[in-house]
Write a protein that binds this DNA or RNA. Structure first.
Length: 214
DNA sequence: CACATGATCGCCT
DNA sequence: GGCGATCATGTGG
C-alpha cells in the first residue's frame, strides 16, 4: 500500500503527559461558533506508527452552512466534495485549494446540517517555529491530505484533545480571511485566534484587520 | 512593510 | 473555462 505522508517529527507529543482529554460527540454537535471558540487552545493530533504527533490550535474560522456565502455548502450545495460537511459533528472535512494546499475542517452540528470549523493555524513546541502557521502549513506539518477526508475524530487516527480547565487563553475575533467574494458574510466576525500566539497565519500577524472598503 | 505574482488542479457552471 | 477557505518569493518604498 502507499504510505501516508508522515507528520513532522518535531510535532511528537504525549497527550497523557499534558493532561489532555478527548471530547465526546456532543462537543462537536454544538453551535459552530461555540465549537470554533473552544478549539482555540485545543490540540489537533495524529497517531502515526504507534506515536502521537500534535499541535496546539491557535486560529480557527466558523463556516455557517447554507446561509453563509463563504461556505462551500452555501445555498445548500451538496456535491461530492462538500459531502463530509453534511456528516455528523466530529468528522474531518479536508479539501484542496489552489491546486496544492490542503485545508482541514472539523465538522459541527448534526448529520444533514453542513457547518464546519476551518483550522487555520497551530503551534508546535519551541524548535518548530511557525511550522503550522496557516491552514495549508498546518496540514502539511501533520501530513493531512484528502486521504484523511471524512475521518471520524472520535474513532480514527486523527483526533482532537482539549486542554485542562483553567488554561489561560486570550481570544481575539475578526472577520474571516480570503473570502472577499462572500458579500455581506465577508464582514461577519467568525475568525477566532489566540492573542498571545506568534503562530497565527501571516496576514494579520502584527495587529488588527486591514480596512475593508466596498 | 506593502503589495504583486506564480504555481497548480479539482470542482463547479 | 475560470477560479479559489494558500504560500513563498520578489519588487519597490
Amino acid at each position: 500500500m502507499i504510505p501516508k505522508k508522515p507528520p513532522d517529527p518535531r510535532l511528537a507529543f504525549d497527550p497523557e503527559e499534558l493532561g489532555l482529554s478527548e471530547p465526546g460527540r456532543v462537543f462537536y454537535r454544538r453551535g459552530t461558533v461555540a465549537v470554533a471558540r473552544s478549539l482555540v487552545g485545543a490540540y489537533l493530533a495524529r497517531r502515526h506508527r504507534g506515536r502521537w504527533y500534535g499541535a496546539r490550535i491557535v486560529e480557527t474560522e466558523a463556516y455557517l452552512g447554507a446561509r453563509d456565502r463563504a461556505a462551500h455548502s452555501w445555498g445548500g450545495r451538496r456535491t461530492p466534495r462538500v459531502e463530509p460537511m453534511y456528516s455528523d459533528g466530529g468528522h474531518l472535512y479536508v479539501f484542496l485549494v489552489y491546486g496544492m494546499h490542503h485545508c482541514a475542517n472539523v465538522v459541527t452540528r448534526r448529520e444533514g446540517v453542513p457547518e464546519a470549523v476551518l483550522l487555520r493555524a497551530a503551534e508546535g513546541p519551541e524548535g518548530a517555529p511557525r511550522l503550522a502557521a496557516g491552514p495549508g502549513k498546518l496540514c502539511s506539518a501533520l501530513g493531512i491530505t484528502t486521504r484523511d477526508n471524512g475521518l471520524d475524530l472520535l474513532a480514527d487516527a486523527i483526533r482532537i484533545f482539549l486542554p485542562g480547565r483553567r488554561t489561560h487563553r486570550r481570544l481575539g475575533v475578526t472577520p474571516r480571511i480570503g473570502i472577499d467574494y462572500a458579500g455581506a458574510a465577508r464582514d461577519w466576525p467568525l475568525r477566532f485566534y489566540d492573542k498571545d500566539s506568534t503562530s497565527v497565519s501571516s496576514h494579520l500577524r502584527h495587529g488588527d484587520i486591514r480596512s475593508r472598503r466596498e
